[in-house]
Design a protein around this nucleic acid. Structure first.
Lengths: 193, 193
DNA sequence: AAACAATCGTTGTTTATCCAACAAATGTTG
DNA sequence: CAACATTTGTTGGATAAACAACGATTGTTT
């Protein structure tokens, strides 16, 4: 770990990418517990010491990987996710819902142990995004509390939906969820969504 | 260029690979003359100075690229190219013939200017390979002259074939060419092939 | 339990790459 | 032709990655 690496250095980007994709490939073969740091570095063709310059250990890599995947999921759907629009909020909720489902279906049984990790990362990402949105709106109150409330609301609604026996259509569900969340982001016009 | 880079260093292998494949991709887009070193390094996401640590200029890269392609062509056909067998010699002749044809057909007009370069690289590769073969045979005479004769014979026969108006079937042609070349590699039993 | 092997996390040193800057050569435009 | 822009090789200094080695855990075998 030592001092921080320069994120803009091409070398750093390269090795990080190599580590990430090697890890992804390994996860498709084995379960997480049986993956060693050596496995990752061998497949990535990088030195083992270099790994530790980027990640504290393989758990930090897992964290980062989950975070990355969710972020990509958002960015693939939203043109400019950096400011609030009702449409962006829709997409955010929708993304969280689908991410939940994907975990329940496409992932192997053995990977469900990471549910709490995933929850933490998703909430973190959502919270950060909502903070950005709120701070760009000129509101008198602080942004932290509305962001927290909205984050938990979104995650809770998504969990509820993904766990439902026979889920309603996603689009329709999100339409109903939207005003419940937006109310925290529109303090000036709470009912008009 | 400075001092030589360590060929076994993973970093060296990586950047060389990046340069090579960026160059290949660019050649598919533009013609060689309009490709700059900057183009290559930008596409490869490496620093321009690093390029010059690997190649003297873009012409050296072209040389290397041709050499590489021909070598791959051989290695894709021959299991163990490191010693002489009649079958390996067959494959070598065959490879040179097909390489010639490929240049005359699939390549754009503008790339035919490199014919002499290609000739030099092919002959170089063939010669090196024949030298290895000859030196593993316990023959009293030196290996250089037989290797030279065979190299030119192979290249000449391949050129002749690829330039023919209506080419005979490659397999049949190679069968006839084989003894003409093998005679230089079998000094002890020249007629028995 | 003891012996053994594999993995871990760290360290000091060497090497490759990055980066910014430069003069020189080349290409382009008016 | 002259002014200008682009590309070319090269340089010195900073930083990331490679490498080998190490003690410390951890896991396995007997």
């Amino acid at each position: 770990m030592s001092s921080k690496l320069n994120e803009h250095d091409p070398r750093v980007r390269r090795t990080r990418q190599l580590i990430e994709q090697s890890f992804d490939n390994l996860l498709a073969e084995k379960n997480f517990d049986s993956i060693t740091v050596q496995d990752v570095t061998e497949k990535a063709q990088i030195n083992r010491a270099t790994f530790y310059a980027h990640f504290e250990d393989k758990y930090a890599l897992l964290d980062h990987s989950i975070r990355q995947k969710f972020r990509q999921e958002i960015e693939s759907r939203v043109l400019n996710a950096c400011h609030y629009t009702p449409e962006n909020l829709r997409m955010l909720i929708l993304t969280v819902c689908e991410f939940q489902v994907k975990l329940n279906t496409s992932c192997t049984q053995s990977q469900k142990q990471f549910a709490p990790l995933v929850e933490k990362q998703i909430k973190g990402q959502v919270y950060e995004l909502l903070l950005v949105w709120l701070r760009k709106m000129d509101i008198p109150t602080s942004a932290e509390m509305p962001a927290t409330a909205a984050t938990w609301a979104i995650y809770g609604l998504a969990s509820y939906w993904s766990a439902s026996k026979n889920r309603p259509a996603l689009e329709a569900y999100v339409d109903k969820a939207l005003p419940l969340v937006a109310v925290n982001l529109n303090p000036l016009a709470p009912a008009a969504v």
